[in-house]
């Protein structure tokens, strides 16, 4: 029986994101929140593993109270237990404070229940793109980490061994490791899950267990949130788009002149 932990993040749906040109920050108002797409892969991978090997899935997130909606949705991926870490003192955390907060919570869960075999993270969140939280948690838990996972080739629970395909810039690496191990997942890691009605119904009713910085999890308050975050944002700006297309109005110049003009431009650029 596998004991799986999946860590997810609720992010703004960046398919229709807009940036305030004056402040350079994201306009979050009216932008729906979704589960980070790479975390969906991690959830799907967990779901497929549970279907094959049996076991239990615990899903954890740190975020504002409305992140409970992301956790409820995780139930649709066969999750058994959902944990929300939310507290004003967690707010403003960079990747250092976030990985500390998550790791301490995971240690707490392992102490009060049983250790996890696999820790699954998305490769990165689409709002911050740092890809640091997964590896940061692995370091604090003192477990090996395999980033950019695309496939689990082999999983032997008896020998406590896993073989994983990992995407790199040069090709695919095949690595083996001993459990427990932390994987950060690429899009390809989990096949899309078409959740059954039973899970859809459960997800509607499920509510996460909520933990804060109230002492149940033994946090060092100085390492949480803004206080525990050495990162300072110096400036955020939207890069100017310098390249511009040249428009030729057919109604003005006619087709033939336009073709000649294009050929001239191509020649000038050395394309032709």
């Amino acid at each position: 029986m596998l004991n799986l932990l999946v860590s997810i993040k609720q992010v703004p749906d960046t398919t229709n994101i807009r940036i305030n040109p004056e402040t350079g920050t994201l306009i979050r108002e009216g932008v729906p929140a979704v589960i980070n797409p790479y975390d969906i892969s991690a959830l799907a991978l967990a779901c497929n593993l549970k279907k094959t090997y049996g076991g239990k899935i615990t899903v954890i997130t740190m975020g504002p109270p409305q992140a409970r909606l992301a956790l409820k949705e995780a139930i649709e991926y066969f999750a058994d237990r959902i944990i929300l870490l939310t507290d004003r003192r967690f707010a403003g955390a960079d990747t250092l404070a976030t990985s500390y907060t998550l790791a301490e919570a995971i240690k707490f869960l392992e102490k009060t229940d049983r250790p996890f075999d696999l820790y699954l993270f998305g490769k990165q969140a689409i709002d911050g793109d740092t890809a640091q939280v997964g590896p940061g948690v692995a370091a604090r838990l003192n477990v090996p980490v395999i980033t950019y996972t695309i496939k689990i080739e082999e999983l032997d629970l008896e020998k406590r061994k896993i073989v994983v395909q990992r995407k790199t810039e040069r090709g695919i690496e095949i690595l083996s490791a001993r459990l427990p191990v932390l994987l950060t997942c690429e899009k390809e890691a989990g096949h899309p899950v078409f959740s059954p009605l039973s899970a859809i119904l459960q997800a509607q009713k499920a509510e996460p267990e909520v933990f804060g910085a109230d002492g149940r999890i033994p946090y060092d308050l100085n390492r949480l949130g803004l206080k525990g975050s050495p990162t300072r944002v110096h400036r955020v700006y939207t890069p100017e788009i310098k390249k511009q297309g040249k428009m030729i109005n057919l109604d003005e110049v006619g087709v033939e002149a336009a073709v000649e003009e294009i050929i001239k431009l191509f020649k000038a650029k050395g394309v032709l």
Binding site: F194, P196, L197, S198
Partner: peptide, 16 residues
């Protein structure tokens, strides 16, 4: 009858 399967282990469409 809906498009969703019954359960994670039975992919036939769920009936209500």
């Amino acid at each position: 009858i809906v498009d969703r399967p019954k359960s994670f282990f039975d992919s036939s469409p769920a009936s209500i």
